[in-house]
């Protein structure tokens, strides 16, 4: 099986480290690329089209281009409109969750406060049989809040 290509966009260095460590901890075959804001994310996605990731984890509160704007830009781009996007944010505000789903997010993960929880969440998302879900579920049933 090919490596699952994962892109993490988050301006917080600590959080990126937690994420990378947790991903390593779940011992699955993944390839992680890290970026610091929405703008560099879009540059990456638009220039290196051969390396389009399988899954993007997107923080909301970021400088230069925030997660909402980046999500919109992704969905505006024809070859990225089916890209799997998981929101990965500290906010648990109902209106933030609603808004990201309206803008086309697939998953919403609230950043957990313990390392074991983080590992659990990532494992759940990464191990999910996306191909199966993408084919058989309608979009509205496909939203996942973790």
């Amino acid at each position: 099986m090919d490596k699952l290509r994962i892109l993490l966009v988050d301006d917080d260095e600590d959080d990126r480290q937690f994420f990378a460590d947790a991903l390593e901890g779940i011992e699955l075959n993944t390839d992680l690329h890290q970026l610091e804001n929405g703008k560099s994310c879009m540059e990456y996605l638009l220039t290196d089209t051969d390396n389009t990731p399988d899954l993007v984890f997107l923080d909301l509160n970021m400088p230069i281009m925030n997660g909402f704007e980046c999500l919109e830009a992704i969905r505006r781009t024809p070859h990225l409109k089916d890209l799997l996007v998981a929101i990965y944010s500290t906010s648990s505000a109902e209106r933030d969750i609603e808004e990201t789903f309206e803008k086309g997010a697939n998953i919403y993960i609230k950043k957990p406060s313990s390392f074991s929880e983080l590992k659990k969440s990532l494992k759940q998302v990464v191990k999910m049989n996306w191909a199966y879900h993408l084919n058989d579920f309608k979009k509205e049933n496909f939203l996942l809040k973790i």
């Binding site: 600590d14 937690f18 460590d21 957990p112 406060s113 313990s114 390392f115 074991s116 983080l118």
Partner: peptide, 15 residues
């Protein structure tokens, strides 16, 4: 945000 980080570091330290 900072609280979550404290908790996160504590949980890692604990682990």
């Amino acid at each position: 945000e900072p609280l979550r980080k404290i908790q996160m570091f504590v949980s890692r330290l604990d682990e």
